[in-house]
Simulated scan of single mutants.
Amino acid sequence: MSITAVTCVKNEGPFLLEWIAFHQCIGVTNFLFYSNDCDDGTDTLLDALAELGHVTHLPNPAEGRNYQMEALKDAKKQSIVSDADWVWIADVDEFPNIHVGDHSFAALIEACGDPHAISLNFQFFANDDIEQFEDSPVIAQFTRSHNPDLWCGEAAIEVKSLVRQDFPLQYFGAHRPFFRPKVKKNQRPSWTDGSGRDVPHRFLVAANPRRIRRFPAAGARAYATLNHYALRSLDSYLVKNDRGDVNRENRAFDDTYWRERNDPAWEDTSIQRYLPALEKQIASLKSQGDIAALHEACVAAHVARRDALLEQKEYRKMQKQLRAASKLPPQEEAMLRDLGLLEPTS
């Protein structure tokens, strides 16, 4: 079974090997990377990995700022995607935590009954008060998250999707595929959540203008969860804020983004079952060609960028603000104030 992972990156060099190695451990056979405007060695590392046959690396084709959607439009035309049995679209801070069988994508597909698509709910992992960037597996460093059934007071949580080759595809969205218009009711794709249950009807038939990309997470994670490490260390968050993201140029991640994802109420170390295989696979990748040296160059560039940012008053202020920020999501804090359980802000 061939599985192609598709992702977009910008200055993610220190985190590439872990993400690739992890996905190789769960059964991904091919990788399609799109990069844009990298200055930390990400593109050089990806080129070296491509020469060794581990990934396909292309420049992002976007002419405007809609980097991810333009890349996904192009990906649909690439043989590495069109010839794959399954396609997985995710970011390099997202890791499927599969709870069944041998903890592989194949085991998840079997548990879900081999549907046309499987959508996994996010579980956002907090910063854990980790300040310094450390060149070690992210999945080992960050172990606390919000209650997986609720996020910022919402029962519906966003998903990412694994898509079978014969899905009646109109186009890939970043979170879920959309099937062609006028597909008859009895020909609609079979589509499950991470418990093998049919996704909610409203999610299934979402038309393009609504672009529904979430559904309730309660009961939807028996077979798999999608661990999302959007914050990582405070150091890495500052660098992330500086570079923006793959979707919008110069996007600033403000205090709200941090607070919404920095709820440490729940401890979950289950993904660490992958660590022995992951560390072995990372070591294997580093042993090939110049991969270890190129990875170290990315790490050095990441640290140097952090140091340069902290020379700026605005970033020192941001660092101080994030250190002091409440670990209650803004929505939950507002609700508690409305109930009189917290003092109003001055």
Score class of each variant (00 low, 15 high):
155 A>Y: 09
155 A>H: 12
155 A>P: 05
157 I>F: 04
159 V>K: 03
160 K>H: 10
160 K>Q: 12
161 S>A: 04
162 L>D: 03
164 R>Q: 10
165 Q>M: 07
165 Q>L: 11
165 Q>V: 03
166 D>L: 03
166 D>Q: 11
166 D>R: 06
167 F>T: 08
167 F>Y: 15
167 F>R: 08
168 P>D: 08
169 L>E: 08
169 L>T: 07
171 Y>F: 15
171 Y>V: 02
172 F>V: 01
173 G>N: 12
173 G>C: 05
174 A>N: 07
174 A>H: 08
174 A>W: 02
175 H>V: 01
175 H>C: 06
175 H>S: 14
176 R>L: 03
176 R>E: 02
177 P>K: 01
177 P>T: 00
178 F>T: 12
180 R>D: 04
180 R>H: 09
180 R>Q: 15
181 P>Y: 09
181 P>C: 14
181 P>M: 04
184 K>F: 05
184 K>T: 08
185 K>E: 14
186 N>I: 02
186 N>H: 14
188 R>P: 04
188 R>W: 06
189 P>I: 00
190 S>C: 07
190 S>D: 13
191 W>G: 10
191 W>K: 11
192 T>W: 00
193 D>G: 13
193 D>R: 03
194 G>D: 03
194 G>K: 03
194 G>A: 12
195 S>R: 07
195 S>N: 09
196 G>T: 10
196 G>D: 10
198 D>H: 10
198 D>P: 09
199 V>T: 08
199 V>P: 12
200 P>A: 11
200 P>V: 02
200 P>C: 03
200 P>N: 06
201 H>S: 07
201 H>R: 09
201 H>A: 09
201 H>F: 07
201 H>Q: 10
202 R>I: 04
202 R>S: 11
202 R>P: 03
202 R>Q: 11
203 F>T: 08
204 L>R: 08
204 L>N: 05
205 V>L: 04
205 V>K: 10
205 V>Y: 06
205 V>H: 05
206 A>C: 12
206 A>G: 07
206 A>R: 03
208 N>P: 08
208 N>Q: 11
209 P>A: 08
209 P>M: 02
210 R>K: 15
211 R>N: 13
213 R>I: 03
214 R>P: 00
214 R>W: 01
214 R>Q: 13
